[in-house]
């Protein structure tokens, strides 16, 4: 499997607080990697570094073999790292289609040149297409405003937007935390389809049952360090819990 993202010895210090201490990890295309750990273990800090929200104190990062430094989320996106944060970054009062293309609107062309007039019809059609590719069938009308969608539908839109430009790396921050059972299933199914399409998926989760149902690998963090890197099929939930709380049998 192809390595698409590589982090080496990444640290992040806030004054005397060492939020991240020498994190090294790799993500592979067509693989779902779960990132678990207790509150304050450094998961969010790690995700923020990878997605360009914050800059690491030391360490290096490679995307598809090339060294990168992300000064902002936009740079990360351009490099192919798309992150779906917990707050989803959707605008409630805009429609599904408008949110799908927020900041990257499709425009009309005139005499072979782009003019600053929205091509609303095309955005709607592309939205339906993008949702269809991911098997999201509960959203039929792209003119529906986000505020009248359910939590699962919102999550679906956010994920669909992240992979709109077929991103090689997708990071999901607690995608099912606020969802009910059936909606969580939808999102997990979505992740599996991303995996099949060759995307490298990193998912932050607290729910070990879900982690075991979708992930190929589990990375455990504790106190700012990566303490374990398991192949999911080789371990039990108990092993992971022990690694999270810091007892014996730390992974390789």
């Amino acid at each position: 499997m192809k390595s698409v993202l590589k982090l080496e010895n990444v640290t992040k210090h806030y004054g005397t607080v060492h939020a991240l201490q020498g994190a090294t990890l790799e993500l592979y295309s067509g693989e779902i990697t779960a990132l678990v750990g207790d509150n304050g273990a450094g998961k969010s800090t790690l995700v923020k570094v990878i997605s360009g929200v914050i800059q690491p104190t030391t360490g290096s990062m490679q995307v598809q073999g090339e060294s990168v430094v992300f000064l902002n989320p936009q740079m990360a996106r351009t490099a192919g790292v798309h992150t779906v944060f917990q707050d989803l970054a959707l605008v409630d009062s805009l429609t599904t289609a408008e949110n799908m293309f927020l900041g990257a609107e499709l425009k009309h062309r005139f005499l072979n040149r782009e003019i600053p007039i929205l091509n609303r019809q095309k955005m709607k059609i592309e939205t339906i297409k993008a949702l269809g590719v991911l098997g999201i069938t509960t959203l039929k009308d792209p003119s529906t405003r986000i505020e009248s969608l359910s939590g699962g539908q919102r999550q679906s839109v956010a994920i669909a937007r992240a992979v709109r430009d077929s991103a090689p790396i997708v990071i999901l921050d607690e995608p099912t935390a606020a969802l009910g059972v059936s909606q969580s299933e939808q999102v997990l199914g979505l992740m599996k389809r991303l995996k099949v399409s060759g995307t490298a998926v990193l998912v932050v989760s607290h729910n070990l049952r879900e982690v075991f149902s979708v992930s190929d690998r589990v990375i455990v963090m504790r106190l700012g360090k990566i303490v374990a890197n398991f192949q999911t099929k080789d371990v039990t939930e108990e092993d992971v819990v022990l690694a999270i709380v810091g007892s014996a049998r730390d992974g390789n």
Partner: peptide, 24 residues
């Protein structure tokens, strides 16, 4: 309603963090 800048104005009013995160 028909130009990108207008939609960006609405998105900034609706959710400035989202607007920023999407590169506006």
């Amino acid at each position: 309603t028909r130009m990108p800048i207008g939609r960006h104005m609405y998105s900034i009013g609706g959710n400035p963090a989202a607007a920023r995160a999407n590169g506006i």
